[in-house]
Design a binder for these strands. Structure first.
Lengths: 189, 189
DNA sequence: CCTTAAGGCCAATGGATTTGCCTTTAGGTT
DNA sequence: AACCTAAAGGCAAATCCATTGGCCTTAAGG
């Protein structure tokens, strides 16, 4: 029998918060003992539940990023893409989000699981694009969406460049323009 | 007095090769002792010169990446951008290059130095774009070059997706098209 | 009020890191 | 060319610290 709630949940929460905090403070070399102390938890407990610092990080990152950027459904391709881009922009502009993305990237080389997780989100996005095409809007590729919008945002995070407010929409517009969709007039019609 | 050559240089070389090899073999958790053994060097020497595994990696990455992708000067904007994109593509398609980029990203959060190094290359690229604008060609932004070409390539590396051959030129064309430069006819004039 | 999953504590353990000292040798000098 | 000198490497012993294992305590979930 597994026990998802109560003390276990509190420990999980505390540990997640601890890693994120430590990373945000630049303590990138913190080990399990440091995390445990910050979380007010015994190191042994962390070792038993997660086994390593990397797993903790991964768990925290996936838990956090799952709450972010749900796939939108505004009824128009432009609306969907812009809304999604904005959500990603917001997620990455938040220092915690940035830190988690970097951590995720770091450990993706080791673990295949997080990639799977990300790709499953990709399928949702693909559906969003497919639905738009079915409505008669321009057909977009998931890869194009990633190239035009996600990649530039990630590059900023990874190189520690600032995320300019509004950049999400701007990137989305580049994609939509390249796809032949006229720029939004903003006046409807 | 510092001694850049002779045995020191050999040790440096051997250690660089060792980290790259180990990473390429998937030994992402290798520590200083493993690196030293692979390099045929005493661990103490590694500790004294670099202090940590991260520094070794960084040193190796910067040393290696400095040799790659020199800024081109073909006389035409399209030629320059396409050639640069292809060089980057080639660098990232090489497993060693990919591994180093990921390593670099991982430790950029900690160290500011490598960012400086990368940005200094950015200035060279900016000159390339400025020179083209001075010739009357479309004026491009460094940021656009990074967004359209570098970011998508990096994203592939970071998410462990394959780098499709020719993708460099394809990305370059997107940028050039967006800039109003007609696609290459390949027939000149 | 049970049962037992999960956490805490403490005492090993083992490998990474540091330290002191000696040997090699790069780079310069005579 | 032989010859300094000190920077850099090697070696071994000492130390430090993350990780593990055994055992007890707490408290979910029924």
């Amino acid at each position: 029998m597994t026990r998802p709630g109560g003390r276990s949940a509190r420990v999980r929460e505390a540990v997640h918060r601890a890693v994120i905090e430590l990373l945000a403070e630049g303590e990138t070399t913190a080990g399990v003992p440091q995390i445990a102390e910050r979380a007010g938890v015994n190191p042994t407990s962390v070792y038993r539940r997660w086994g390593s610092c990397a797993s903790v990080l991964l768990d925290a990152a996936v838990a956090r990023l799952s709450l972010t950027s749900p796939v939108p459904d505004t009824g128009s391709l432009r609306g969907d893409v812009e809304q999604w881009a904005t959500a990603v922009e917001r997620a990455l502009a938040d220092p915690d989000g940035a830190v988690l993305v970097r951590a995720l990237i770091t450990f993706i080389g080791t673990n295949a699981d997080p990639i799977e997780h990300l790709l499953s989100r990709g399928e949702d996005l693909e559906q969003m694009l497919t639905a738009a095409a079915a409505r008669g809007e321009p057909a977009l590729d998931l890869q194009e969406l990633l190239d035009y919008v996600l990649a530039p945002l990630y590059l900023r995070v990874l190189l520690s460049r600032p995320i300019e407010p509004g950049i999400g929409v701007q990137l989305a517009d580049r994609l939509l323009t390249a796809a032949g969709l006229p720029p939004a007039s903003g006046q409807g019609g």
